[in-house]
Amino acid sequence: MSMLDIILDIGFFAAAIRLAVPLLLGTLSELVAERSGVLNLGIEGMMLAGALAGFATAHVTGSLWLGVLAALILGALIGLLMALLVVILRLDQTVAGLGVTMATTGLVFFSYRLGFGESATPPAITPFSTIPLPLLSDIPYIGPVLFNQYALTYITYLLVPALAFFLFRTPAGLALRTVGENPKAAAGVGIDPIKVRILALMAAGALAGLAGAYLNLAAFGSFTFGIISGRGWICLALVVLGRWKPFACAGAALLFGAVDAFQLRLQTSGSVDLPYQLFLALPYVATLIVVIVNTRFAAAPAALMEPYDPEKR
């Protein structure tokens, strides 16, 4: 199988989308947080918490959608915790974010052990199956790729334009962006930057929770260690690659997913004889190159990582 055959295969594009969706959800989460001026390094922990909440709820209740709901709620709660640390207490965002990730990681594995014990065969649920959308999935070539996916994937398709509309076409979106650029100016026109940042972090937490839940409610049917495997950290790079814009972020996630799907196929095709580590590095190298080329004129939100203190002049 040559490289061209790989790229022309329908299976490749479908895999690219499956690999991109959790990254895209995480990137949108980070986008919301950073647009409000908070670097959310708690994202990895939030995704993990969402994965466990989703899995545990689905396992106990038998309802996958209740699992999704639980992931959204727990994610939002951890977002609230993050907000308490960096917005109310104005702690250093890097340290607080890493702390949130470490604390939730420990708590999640501890709760999993308490709740599910240890067993040679990890407990499993029946994950979402793909739903072919009527008519759309009959379109030759792109139909089976785009419209024979999980329900959560369709929701993600809709989230991208919805978030773009929210950010650039609504007063609330303007308020969010203003707080991220200049919280003092925002306060001057009657916006409460503290409230905006708390809400933004809760929304970011919910989205990160959803990203985690996708991994074991759709992509994989059980909760295992390493289910997130650093995908949260990748989102931090993808949001830069996506220049803090929803559609560009979707493109960034798709690029990463596509190169990842490509390298997995390249490894098994045997057409290129290289050490496997080079294949695995491909998506990261591609991201790095595009970041260098693409983000020269992109500017991060001006107040990113700056705590807002209303009493300071």
Binding site: P22, L215, A219, F220, S222, T224, F225, G226, I227, S229, L264, Q267, T268, Y276, Q277, F279, L280
Partner: peptide, 11 residues
Amino acid sequence: AAYIGSMFDPP
């Protein structure tokens, strides 16, 4: 043969 580069990454 394919390697995933991690001991735990089921997806």
